[in-house]
Every structure is written in structure tokens, then in C-alpha cells.
Simulated scan of single mutants.
Amino acid sequence: MVHSMTGYGKAVAELPHKKLTIEIKSLNSKQFDLFTRIPVIYREKEIGLRNYLSKKLERGKIDLSITVERISKDLSSTIDHTLLKQYHQEITTLAGELQIGVPQDWFQILLRMPDVMKQDVEELDETEWLAIEEAVEKAVDELIRFRAQEGEMLKNLLTEKVTNIRQLLQEIEPYENERIEKVKSRIYDGLATLENKEYDVNRFEQELIYYIEKLDVNEEKARLINHLDYFIETLEGQKSQGKKLGFIAQEMGREINTLGSKSNHSDMQRIVVRMKDELEQIKEQILNVL
């Protein structure tokens, strides 16, 4: 089953004092690359999250975000009276030295000074984390379903491109014998223009056969057909194998390039160019396959 590396999943965890939204996005990448945006309180759990996501998602550029929306104020804030008085004294003294007026709204200024407002330290509750883990699993499952849907479309597209190459390969056949005859005629015509030149006919026939054999593309065609069959077989497999498909596509490219170099026929070369175009589209889409 082909899976795309592109996907999106979202889940929400409802807690008494919080609403947590988990979003996971995935794009294509040669390896597993995770970027997280999560509150500081959950940082201690990040390694476990990374291990879980790498196991479930395998490859891709993964973006995980956990957003917290507080339903009620469950943390209390206090004012550091001593520090506030110190700031007040320093500002008053400095205003006198610089001969400038003191602030009109003292509290607005002082409450914004560093560390004046102290908030109770929040500790991670295991029950809360279990709810987050469950939500992450739901988001991952949704992302995997998204990947499977995208993968089905990729599979259909890749199958279509392979079929096109197979059909183009059949279009080459009518030009093969025609090409050989043209080569023979051109050589014989060239010899006919020579005057008073004798040559060994048997040796000439041997050289001609050797030259024509160098133009033979049956082996390349057979290997290309095998690669096309193997590509489809891999597509139909139980596991998505983007890297393997990439390797097979490289082998397909080698055979198509050899066909082009041996063609020695304008119509065949045009067909080979069309095959290369189909192959490039295959390679481009394989980059998205898991």
C-alpha cells in the first residue's frame, strides 16, 4: 500500500481547566525530521514523543504543535512587594537626579517591571499527560489516514505513467527493422560511390553484422520491461517503499538512455524523449512516497 508523506492530523483534549489542541503536519523528506512547538511544562516528555512519532510516521518533515487554552484561572499570581518598593525608590531617586517628573501612573509602570508579578510554578500532572498522549495518538491516526488517501492517488498516477512508458516502448518496434535497413542501404550506397576500390565481401559482411548488433536494443527493451513490472509489483506491496521505487526508477532511466543512444532514428528518438518525460514525472512523484 502506497502512503504519501504529506498529511495532517488534529485532535483536542478537554481538561477541567484547559483545552489542548494537538496538530501534526507532515511533508516529504529523505529522513525523519521533527519540529515541535509545545509549552515548556511538557518539554520533559519531548523525547518520548519523538520516539513515538518516528516509529509511527517513519519519514517526513513533521511539525507538531500543542496549543493550550485556559478555561479558568487555575494559577494564582502574587506581587513581590519588596521588589516593587525597590523599583519605586530607584525610579524616584533617578527622576530627582535627572530633574525629570515621576510617572503619573505608578502602578502601570511598576507592575510591568521584571519579576514584580510572580506566578505559582505549574507542575505536570500525569493524568493530564495521559490525556495529551491519547490526543496525540488520535492526531497521528488521522494523519496516517490522510497519508493513505494521498497515497492512493499517487499510486494511480504512477501506474498511469508506467503504462505510458510501456505503450511508448511498443511504438518503437515498427522503426527497428526500418532503421536497420536504412543503415545497410546507406553503407552500400557509400561503397557504390567509390571507384576502383576492392574489398573483402565476407569481411565486410562480418563488420556490417557487428555494427548492426551494436544498434540492437532488444536487451534494453527486455530489461526495461522487467523494471516496469518490478515497479508495479513494488507499488502493489503491503508496505509503502518510496526509496525502493526511486532505485527502480533510476534503473529504468539507464535503459531508456541507452535506447536513446542506440536509436539512430529520428522517430525513435522522439519516442525516447517522451519516455524520459514520463520517467521524470515518476521521479518527481516518488519524492512524496513514504
Rank of each mutant, 00 (worst) to 15 (best):
K55S: 13
Y52F: 15
E58T: 12
L57G: 03
D74K: 02
L53C: 01
T67C: 01
D80Q: 06
N51Q: 15
K61I: 09
S76I: 01
R50K: 15
R70K: 15
S65W: 10
D80K: 01
R50V: 05
G60T: 11
K55P: 00
I71S: 05
K56F: 01
L75P: 04
S54K: 15
I66Q: 05
K56Y: 07
D63L: 10
G60R: 14
S76E: 07
R50M: 10
K55T: 12
S77M: 04
L57A: 06
D80L: 02
V68W: 14
H81P: 07
E69R: 15
K61V: 10
K56Q: 14
N51M: 09
E58I: 14
E69N: 14
L64M: 11
T78I: 05
I62M: 11
T78P: 05
I66P: 08
T67K: 14
Y52I: 04
L53H: 03
S76A: 00
T67L: 10
S54A: 15
I66Y: 05
L64N: 08
K55H: 11
S54V: 12
I62S: 02
S54D: 10
L53Q: 01
I71Q: 08
H81C: 04
R70Q: 08
S54Q: 15
S72Y: 06
D63M: 12
T78W: 02
N51T: 10
N51F: 05
S54R: 15
D74T: 02
L75Y: 11
L83A: 04
K56N: 05
L83S: 04
L64P: 07
H81Q: 07
S54L: 08
S65M: 13
H81R: 03
S76Q: 00
H81N: 02
I62W: 11
S65Q: 13
R59M: 07
L53S: 00
S65Y: 11
S76Y: 03
K55R: 13
K73F: 06
I79G: 04
L75V: 14
K61H: 13
K56E: 13
N51L: 12
I71M: 02
I62K: 11
L57W: 06
T78E: 01
V68N: 14
N51P: 04
H81W: 03
I79Y: 06
E69S: 15
I66K: 07
K55M: 07
K61Q: 12
